[in-house]
Design a protein around this nucleic acid. Structure first.
Length: 322
DNA sequence: AACACTCCCAACCGCTACCTC
DNA sequence: CGAGGTAGCGGTTGGGAGTGT
């Protein structure tokens, strides 16, 4: 969209981005270019982005082609408005993960990191600010504890809003080609890059609620449960041997139940003469985890079989924000 | 109708980590 | 082990659409 001129000017700096080469087109993609790229990838598959443009007959850099495919042309990309349940999930994931857009996107079927990032920057961050919440830390902008009631938001009209059923068609998101939207996402643990299979949130939800009816304390201990690994169709929706994924989902589920507890507490408080501000669903877990002791215990438990370095980056974030 | 302003989001940039030789 | 190439990430930009005056 920037620099809609057909050929970019070569940067005057020593940096020479791949698409700044003379003769390569930049700016908005035309339908013809989209078709060229789509048909080529349908034929040949993704990968080798560097040489793809030439082979596909495109006057674009590979980087631009990849972005166009990942963010727009992939069949599994879901267009349209972010649903309220998706928004709720983004908020919770962002509080857990920070600006790890690709990691967040990997858990919201059909949404790209770019889309989520844009939505966050244009909608959710402003929404949180309007509620008096720091969008970076999810903590009150005003640290004065006496002002907590000012930023508390009323509970959702529909009541509890646990991790939603985001995708009515479980087959609509598959394990496809490699790339950001391939049903897997790249995550960083320490200095290592890992490929992580997307979690089917529906499965997680059912597992979470199953636990809630029975023994959801399993989640608290972040035990890596093999029960989460398979669904009835036998699809690999959950990477059972990826403890980090399991751990993250445990956090999400724990977040849900943190909300549940707070919501129930709030409802109990909604008796006459109990005009206490409702708990902010966005702060519940922060409050639940309080000084981070529970996080520490949970992380220690869940990482028993893994090196500390692998989780360091994630834990740093957790400690920073909780 | 014309202009100004704001918002949205597709696309690009710079950086980092991994891979290959 | 180091250099170069590649892929992917988060941050940022800016044109177009929408809205207000």
């Amino acid at each position: 969209m920037r620099n809609p001129s057909s050929a970019s000017a070569v940067s005057s700096t020593s940096k020479t981005p791949c698409c700044s080469k003379v003769g390569l087109k930049r700016g908005p993609w035309t339908p013809e270019e989209d078709e060229l790229l789509s048909s080529y990838i349908r034929r040949e598959g993704v990968g080798r982005w560097r040489t793809l443009p030439k082979r596909a007959g495109l006057l674009r850099c590979g980087k631009s082609c990849r972005l166009r495919w990942v963010n727009y042309l992939r069949p599994c990309v879901k267009r349209g408005h972010i649903a309220p349940d998706e928004e709720d999930l983004i908020l919770r994931l962002h509080r857990l993960l920070g600006n790890r857009w690709s990691l967040i996107a990997g858990r919201i079927p059909g949404r790209t990191d770019n889309e989520i990032k844009n939505y966050w920057n244009t909608h959710l961050s402003k929404k949180l600010i309007s509620q008096g919440i720091d969008p970076r830390t999810h903590k009150p902008l005003n640290p004065n504890p006496n002002s907590l009631e000012d930023f508390h938001t009323p509970p959702p009209a529909s009541g509890l809003n646990p991790i939603p059923n985001l995708d009515p068609n479980p087959n609509s998101r598959g394990l496809q080609e490699t790339g950001v939207g391939d049903g897997a996402t790249t995550i960083y643990k320490g200095n290592k890059r890992f490929r992580e299979i997307n979690v089917n949130l529906d499965q997680d939800h059912s597992a979470a609620f199953e636990n809630s009816n029975g023994n959801w304390q399993k989640s608290e201990g972040f035990t890596i449960s093999s029960n989460l690994g398979n669904n009835e169709e036998g699809n690999i929706d959950y990477c059972t041997d990826d403890a980090f994924s399991s751990f993250l989902n445990s956090l999400i589920n724990l977040d849900v139940f943190g909300n549940q507890e707070q919501q129930q507490q709030y409802q109990r408080q909604q008796q006459p003469n109990h005009l206490i501000a409702p708990p902010d669903p966005l702060l519940n877990s922060a409050q639940t985890f309080g000084d981070g002791a529970l996080w520490e215990a949970a992380i220690t438990s869940s990482t028993a079989a893994f090196s500390h370095d692998e989780y360091k980056r994630f834990i740093d974030h957790v400690h920073k924000h909780f």
